[in-house]
């Protein structure tokens, strides 16, 4: 990211982005992983993680952001999130019920507690984060596609 690119916004925006984008990403991970002990969770955390990439795309242009997180990887993450969530639910069948919390619950308010809830949060975070970023990319790229089509005409 230290290379200066021609595309994107001004130097000030790029510098601030460089400083903050990692923090935003880590904050998203924090919200995501502490979903069962504090407000937040998979959805909110996933959104924040996705926003860090959206931020990157706004400041540096689509090429840099898509280099960090290509479209194929995004759709893979999205599918994986759903599959992981569904598998967690399905493993519950081994304990008798769909979606049953089959892991040890642990002590309340500890990071490693609440059984399957943190795992579900991670899966939701993957799904929501990748999904939101994919929607953003789709909107951006669709615009480029139509523009290039019109130019050809």
């Amino acid at each position: 990211m230290s290379r200066e690119h021609d595309k994107g916004m001004s130097v000030i925006v790029k510098t601030i982005t460089r400083l903050t984008v990692g923090l935003i990403f880590l904050y998203g991970i924090h919200i995501l992983s502490h979903g069962h002990v504090s407000p937040g969770g998979g959805f909110a955390g996933g959104i924040i993680v996705a926003l860090s990439f959206v931020h990157l795309m706004l400041a540096y242009g689509k090429d840099v952001a898509l280099e960090k997180l290509p479209r194929g990887v995004t759709s893979l993450f999205e599918g994986m999130g759903a599959i992981i969530f569904l598998s967690i639910a399905l493993i519950g069948f081994t304990s008798g019920y769909f979606f049953i919390n089959f892991l040890a619950k642990g002590e309340p308010f500890r990071l490693f507690s609440a059984g399957i809830i943190p795992l579900c949060n991670i899966a939701i975070g993957l799904k929501v984060g990748a999904g939101l970023f994919a929607i953003f990319v789709a909107l951006v790229l669709l615009k480029f596609d139509t523009e290039s089509k019109e130019n050809k005409k």
Partner: peptide
Amino acid sequence: LNIIPLFVVIPLTGSFLISI
């Protein structure tokens, strides 16, 4: 009883496996 969740599980699994 265990048939009941399958109606949601089977198509959802198929859908996301296809997407990957």
